[in-house]
């Protein structure tokens, strides 16, 4: 899978992440967290292309926007990864 899910703390947090990435020309779409990804339930995140992962994280870090976790689908399930 060539998609990463960057987890947010709330829908507003996810919106801020997506807006920041889009402003920098990186396609980002808000998504509900699949079951199992967010143990708290009903989580939100931002999906981006895997190829832009490092760049996206740099943009967010630079803007002071925290990411609650990075997930990638390995064909069976979403798993936390490190970039």
């Amino acid at each position: 899978m060539d998609v990463l899910l960057l987890m947010a703390g709330s829908i507003t947090h996810a919106q801020r992440m997506a807006a920041m990435l889009e402003n920098r020309g990186l396609r980002a779409s808000i998504a509900r967290a699949p079951a199992g990804v967010d143990p708290r339930g009903c989580g939100y995140g931002v999906k981006i292309r895997r190829a832009y992962g490092t760049q996206a994280l740099d943009v967010l870090r630079h803007a002071g926007i925290k990411v609650r976790g990075i997930y990638q689908h390995d064909g069976e399930a979403w798993r936390e990864v490190e970039l």
Partner: peptide
Amino acid sequence: GSASRSREMPEEL
């Protein structure tokens, strides 16, 4: 609409 499993209110604003 968030953190629904928790009995506590979310920490995040």
